[in-house]
Structure formats: C-alpha cells, structure tokens
Computed example of a mutant assay.
Amino acid sequence: MSPEIAVLDIQGLFRVYTEFYRADAAEKTIIMVNGSLATTASYAQTVRNLYPQFNIVLFDQPYAGRSKPHNTHEAPLSREIEAHLLLELIEHFHADHVMSFSWGGVATLLALAQRPKRIEKAVVSSFSPVINDAMQDYLLRGVKHLGERNRYEVGHLINDTIGKHLPSLFKRFNYRHVSSLDLHEYDQMHHHITQVLAVDPQNYLAAASNIKIPVLFMNGALDEYTSGQDVHHFTKYVQDCSFSTIQDAGHFLDMENKAACRDSKNALLGFLQPGAVSASNTRHAYHQPQGTHAFAL
C-alpha cells in the first residue's frame, strides 16, 4: 500500500505535499485534515481502517511536515486560508468525503460552510464547540510555553493532557516530534491558540449553520478536553448531524488501544458506508438526534 506522492502548487501561493492512496475497487475518495502540529503520519492507523474501501488523500499544511521545505514561512496561516487550501485539494482529488482531527475541525467546518459540491459526508473527530475548563487550562499553558518556545514544556504538556491515554511508545514518538519542530511551527500553533482564545465561538458556529451535508462528530468517552457531551451543541447549528462516542478512548481515538481502534473503524464505516458494519459488532454509542435536521491537536 504505497501512496502516489505529489507536491501541488496552490494558486502560486503555497506548495502542499500530498499522499494519495488509490484503491482500485473504491468508489469514493476521502481527504483527511490534520490537527495542529500534526503531519500525514498522524493518520497511519486511520488509513489502515479505511483502505481499501476508500481512496485516501493525506496532506501536510504548508508550514508542517514534508510541505515545509517548499514554502516560505513569513507569517502564520489563518484558519480561513487553511479552509481555502482544503477546498482546492477537494477539487483537485475529486474528494467525496472529508475527515478532520482536533483543531483541523475549524478549517474543515469553514470549508464545508462554502458548500463544496463534491463533498457528500464529513467526519469531525476530537473537536468541540465548547472551550471547557480543561481545554481552557490546556490552551493557556500552551500559549505560555509556545510563546517562550520551550520545547521541553510543550512536549510534556501534550503528553500529560490530551495525550495522556496514548501508549508509552506513542508518547515517546509524540514528544520527539513536538520537541523537535521548527520555531515557525511553534509560532503557528501560538497563533492558532491565540485566535481560539480571542474569537467568539459563535463566529464559526454561525458558519456551520450553512453546512447541509451529513456530519458525524466523533469523540472519545475519556476525552475531557473535547468531550462527547459538549459536542452536542452542534445540534443547534449543523442541520444533519450525528454523534459517535468511542468507549475506552481519549483524544487520540484509534491510536490509543485495540478496542478504540476497532470501534473507531466501525463508527467511520457505519457512517460512510451504511450497512457495512453489523450492529452486533459495534460497541460505540452512535445516535442521530430525533427531529434534528439540523472546533486537537
């Protein structure tokens, strides 16, 4: 399962590294949106869960991963720019579905609010419209450590909070990755968090009310930062939404343990391919609000 690799020019402004996992029998293509500080490697397990049922597109933001060498980093990117990049990639790859992780959910919701014609369904994972006390504490500590460019504290903050349910090996990889990032990546994340703390969530929630396609919000039952309870606020804005709470999982869902991996896969396929997963094999809580047609690292 080797991807087709390309670096795409986006309107002469950015160059984006992409991986396209083509499955000959797949009828649909899904594009994955990373969380902050993450790269294509973050979706390794999700790719295994969805391939070969789908063609899969991964990409690195211009400031991250294998896109970094192809771009200048003069100023942080806004979520609006990231949403525009996503829309361009959707068109290029003729994507039918989109899936986001954590803060990638903001750019994804902003892009979906533009009603891209090709997108039929979307999955927004480990994201919440509510900045609760746990998330507020995490963000404030993050702003401090990122502003000081303190690699040690940033790495440990992530593993001690949103990553606390990861296996020890994953925590070591996570710390190594986060503590070795370029300084402009810390500045980018600092910019993101500052925006989140300063901007009224109603701004992007109002944009979400323009989304007309079905959206699945998927959260871990053990995730106190983007909780499955808080995410239900989206019922007021997204016309066609459903929710899946993955038991025995925290913020990183399918990366945390075998049961969470299995249940995440069942939730995804059950939403994207109805009938493909037997209800008897599903342990996650999945429901659609009655009468409702209604962003981590």
Results as ranks from 00 to 15, higher is better:
Gln136Met: 15
Ala221Val: 13
Asp96Tyr: 07
Gln239Thr: 14
Gln290Ser: 13
Thr72Cys: 09
Phe20Leu: 10
Phe252Ala: 07
Ser36Ala: 15
Val47Asn: 06
Glu256Asn: 02
Asp187Pro: 07
Gly250Met: 04
Ser280Thr: 12
Leu77Glu: 06
Ser126Phe: 04
Asp96His: 14
Ser168Val: 12
Tyr286Gly: 08
Ala6Gln: 14
Val16Pro: 03
Met32Tyr: 08
Lys121Ala: 06
Leu86Asn: 02
Ile56Leu: 02
Ser168Met: 14
Arg79Trp: 10
Gln53Glu: 13
Pro69Phe: 07
Ser102Tyr: 00
Lys258Phe: 15
Phe14Asn: 04
Ser78Asn: 05
Glu19Phe: 01
Thr194Pro: 06
Leu268Val: 10
His84Pro: 02
His84Asp: 15
Thr235Glu: 13
Tyr152Gly: 08
Ser227Pro: 04
Thr18Met: 05
Arg176Asp: 15
Leu166Phe: 05
Val143Ala: 11
Ser36Phe: 08
Leu146Met: 09
Ala23Pro: 06
Thr161Lys: 01
His145Trp: 11
Arg141Thr: 04
Asn159Pro: 03
Asn49Pro: 05
Asp263Arg: 06
Tyr21Lys: 01
His284Met: 14
Gly270Trp: 00
Phe217Tyr: 10
Gln290Val: 15
Pro62Thr: 07
Val143Met: 10
Met218Asp: 03
Leu205Asn: 04
Thr29Cys: 05
Leu222Gln: 14
Phe54Val: 06
